[in-house]
Simulated assay, not measured.
Amino acid sequence: METLTKKRTFAELLASDKFIVSAELTPPRHFDTTKFMEAAGIVSEYVDVVQLNDHLLSRARLSNLVAGMHCKNAGLEPILQFTLRHRNRIALQGDLLGFANLGLENVIILGGYPCAIGTDPEARDATDLGSVEAIASITALTREGKMFNGDVIKPAPKFTVGTIDFPCATDKIEDSMKRLTEKIDAGARYIQVQAIFELGPMQFWMAEVVRRGLHRRARFLAAIFPFSGAERLHVLREIPGLSIPDHLLARVEGHNSERESLAITLELINGIRDIEGISGLHIRSIGAEDWVPRIIEAAGLGGELVY
């Protein structure tokens, strides 16, 4: 893939008022990055940043550090998912120093699915830090050069740290907002909200975010999963944490076509853009990178203009 003209950094985008658009790339289950970089080339001109998942669904894959390096060398602005599931604090710090050495400065913290659901169910989870503690530790490393045990290194690496969160039921909103506030207090500069298939839960959750003024302290990016029909929705329904309502599945099964699937996706995007406090969209284009240009163009969203 030809080298692209450099775009604004993610930190610069977060400091701007631009509606940020990102797409997700999945490192391969081998070491050949040819098809991976072809997928990166498909989305590169349409998004501001690319997000590289980290052993997606607990399946052993090429390190996203390596994949991120290839993307950065090709002129993209990568965000690396940083999963706590399979790293103790020594491994966390080692990977962070590796990121810094390669100029990979954007990380999004997530706990990760348990090893039991993945390719190696006998593997042991190695979670050593919770999300809030990990965010705080990486923020201290960035601001003070402070390693997790208090040792100070110079120069300090520069990381832009974010995390994920989930719209919740009405009776859980207080606990949800408490946890969200803790993440922002710890240093999270952006919050990516779990992919949705209906607007109601997101609208309710974001209304509380705005009421508490949290949208002024961090950027909030909504997420969607592109799908081409009912078969894809049934697959997505098996992923823990995703909620696909029966009425949506019935609608797709009744008009099972790419056209109907795209229409539903655009309805979601238009609704998301109307939600106060949402200032970006993440497209979880896992194996569906060819849908990114269609969605971006149909929705009237443009990636960051190069300069």
Rank of each mutant, 00 (worst) to 15 (best):
M69K: 13
D48H: 12
S22M: 08
E297M: 11
D165K: 06
L96A: 02
T33Y: 10
L4N: 11
S261R: 01
P78S: 10
P226H: 10
E231R: 14
D185R: 13
V50M: 12
T119E: 09
I296D: 04
G98E: 00
F19Y: 10
S22A: 11
C168H: 12
R216D: 13
S131K: 02
Y113K: 03
K18W: 05
T119L: 09
A39T: 10
R59G: 11
A67H: 08
I135W: 00
P226T: 10
I117Q: 01
N73H: 15
R8E: 13
E2G: 13
E182H: 11
P245R: 09
F31G: 13
P293G: 01
N101K: 14
H55I: 12
R217M: 03
A156Q: 01
A207R: 14
G241L: 07
M147C: 07
T5V: 13
T33E: 06
R212Q: 14
Q51M: 14
E133V: 07
I239D: 05
A39R: 12
I295D: 02
R237M: 12
R217N: 11
E289Q: 09
D128S: 07
V107H: 00
G130L: 05
E24I: 05
E174R: 13
T83E: 09
T163G: 02
R259A: 15
N64V: 07
L56M: 15
N149Y: 09
N88V: 10
A91M: 14
I135C: 03
T139V: 06
I109T: 00
A298L: 06
T127F: 04
K183D: 06
E38D: 15
W205D: 01
I264L: 11
W205K: 02
I20F: 03
A140H: 06
I244A: 04
E144T: 05
G187Y: 04
G75L: 10
Y190E: 11
D171G: 12
N106Q: 04
F82S: 01
S279E: 09
V43Y: 04
L248S: 04
G213Q: 07
Q194E: 14
I164K: 05
K72L: 13
D125A: 09
M177S: 03
L221P: 00
E133M: 06
Q81H: 14
Y46C: 04
Y307M: 14
I191P: 01
T142E: 02
P226I: 10
G277I: 00
I184E: 07
S58T: 09
T5S: 11
V306Q: 11
